[in-house]
Amino acid sequence: MAEKKNGPTNVLIVGVGGQGVIMVSKVLAMLCQNHGYEVKQSEVHGMAKRGGGVFSHVRFGSSVWSPTIPVGEADVLVALEWAEALRWINYMNPQTGTFIADTQKIVPPFACRVRDRGADAMYSEETPAEIMENVRAGYAMDATSIAEDLGNLKAANTVLLGALSNSLEFSVDAWLEVIRSFVPPKSIDINMEAFAKGREWAQAGPKRVDENAKGRGVSGRDLHKQVETKLEITEEWCKGCDICVKMCPERCLRLNDQLISELHKPDACTGCRMCEWLCPDFAIKITNTPIMEPAE
């Protein structure tokens, strides 16, 4: 720990439901209690289990009052996922805090909801390198790939614990003893190795970014931004079978009073051609006309 204040030590652990945030914080809480500290570990679960964000506050010291860490007072932020790291980054003490994050991206379906042409997933745009410029100490590491190389993706959390171990006073043996008691017997060896890898990775200096961080995510450039979509329905051919209405991914078609298909939400139509392809009577025609030359 860089400089220690009077109050408790604060570690904030964050991630996505199912990643093991609670397990990581239980390991830390047990470790602190084994060393005679008063510990409070606070989490909120419930909705979070279902792919939402999960956070857990761990505070330890000679005495601890609030179970939650005040904003701006976390000594270490440990993030199991990149966008979650960014969500909680301001909980970190800007002068003394250490930032530890897995660079892996978990892109939620909610981020893929804009269907405009050329729209990208609405994932956080800040890169590890940008963030690292503005933290006092930090490690943006591809812990998931490190764990994958060891043969078990789930050991990514232990890689991060290895990195965290540099920031806290406990001995390596004490860490390993507690981790051993939490992981399934058959994965003990991999977790021991994962811890060593994480610890070693973060020992290279006060700041380190994994340049090759892969992560799962969406990027890329689109060449079809400016297109005008026209949907035409030959009413004489439509027999009102309802297939296009039911299958339209954007729900922009309906049957009118005469049971003929009509486009009632033209703004929602993305020109995906589903209705055109599925219409058994060839009554629908889609034309997508570029209104501008693709850039570059």
């Binding site: 939620p108 379906p109 042409r117 997508n288």
Partner: peptide, 26 residues
């Protein structure tokens, strides 16, 4: 895949956009 987004309407967390595009959609 023609990027029609029918499956994305499920909101399933296992489904996400790939790097590929089709007529301006992932």
């Amino acid at each position: 895949c023609v990027a029609c987004q029918s499956c994305m309407n499920l909101g399933c967390p296992a489904l996400t956009w790939s790097e590929g595009w089709y007529e301006g959609r992932h």
